[in-house]
Amino acid sequence: MNWVRKSRLLQTLRELVSVRLAKFGLVVLGIAVIAAVFSPLLSVHDPIKINPRDSLQSPGSKYWLGADRLGRDQLARLIYGARVSLIIGGAGVGIAVVAGITIGTISGWAGRWTDEVLMRIMDALAAFPNIIFALVLVAVTGGAMRNIILVIGLVFTPAVARLIRAQVLSVKERDYVIAAVALGASPARIISSHLIPNSLAPVIVQASIAFGAAILLEASLSFLGVGVKPPTPTWGGMLRHAFEVVDLAPWLTFTPGATIFLVVLAFNFVGDALRDTLDPRLRGAR
């Protein structure tokens, strides 16, 4: 069984890499991951050290991307910002996936009043725009990194829960599940062996797209001044500080804005490619 799973994984990876836009997305994400993991090695300057004499220095040999109004190296803050964005996005989406799978599976399997109660709660949470919902939660919990992660997890849980519920409702009517019930298999075994494994493909696609959306949401919160607190470097925070001096140093707005755009676009490209790869009906449409 292990070699069969490895063979399927390798086949999926080969098909994913064969999609042109996915190659671009994977390269961009690879660069972001390298920047996040090796931030201390790649950064020449301290990202939080203030150098008043270098305030708003234009790009040059000392500061390749310039310095902000406090004299901090823009490139160093961009590199360290990758770590913050990927940690928050990954942890937040991870919480959303675990909570969504749990809620959606229970709802789809149990049905009746359990399904009604859980799905009405998810519908109520999903009714709010993501940014408004996140702003309210952050205002209540504060802007600590762990709170931002929990907020992002809560914001994206309803979408995952509704998706996994729809999959479970479909899978539990299939012959092999009905046979397992007839043979007396416990609900826990049916859920862990049949329902969840056969419902994960669309969740993986949803998670990859949600990762990009989570990074964008974190950047939006930081841009509005309610995200991760200074002096921790974040892409949204860099963009906010750059807009305060856009008339004096317009180049400061370009790098964080372009980085957010490229990373979010890369996650969307990879998510679309995963959808085409994991859905047999779409493989011939590429």
Rank of each mutant, 00 (worst) to 15 (best):
175 D>E: 14
2 N>F: 10
71 G>F: 08
38 F>E: 04
180 A>Q: 08
281 R>E: 11
21 L>I: 11
29 L>R: 09
111 G>I: 04
17 V>I: 15
206 Q>R: 13
184 G>T: 10
216 L>I: 02
143 G>V: 12
61 S>F: 13
252 L>D: 08
9 L>K: 07
192 S>K: 08
73 D>P: 09
107 S>I: 06
219 A>H: 02
202 P>C: 06
237 G>S: 03
183 L>N: 10
35 A>P: 01
62 K>S: 13
149 I>N: 01
195 L>N: 03
9 L>V: 11
117 V>N: 01
126 A>L: 14
82 A>M: 14
63 Y>F: 15
8 R>I: 07
111 G>K: 06
267 F>G: 12
75 L>M: 12
241 H>M: 07
61 S>T: 15
265 L>C: 03
211 F>L: 15
215 I>V: 11
64 W>G: 01
11 Q>L: 14
238 M>V: 08
124 A>P: 00
253 T>M: 14
67 A>M: 02
223 F>D: 04
202 P>K: 01
10 L>S: 10
273 A>E: 14
191 I>H: 04
250 P>H: 12
3 W>S: 14
169 L>G: 01
50 I>A: 13
198 N>G: 07
119 M>W: 00
114 T>Q: 07
110 A>S: 10
168 V>L: 06
68 D>L: 03
193 S>G: 09
107 S>A: 14
124 A>R: 00
242 A>T: 00
78 L>D: 04
52 P>S: 12
95 I>Q: 07
126 A>P: 04
47 P>M: 02
54 D>T: 04
283 R>W: 05
241 H>Q: 14
221 L>W: 10
203 V>H: 10
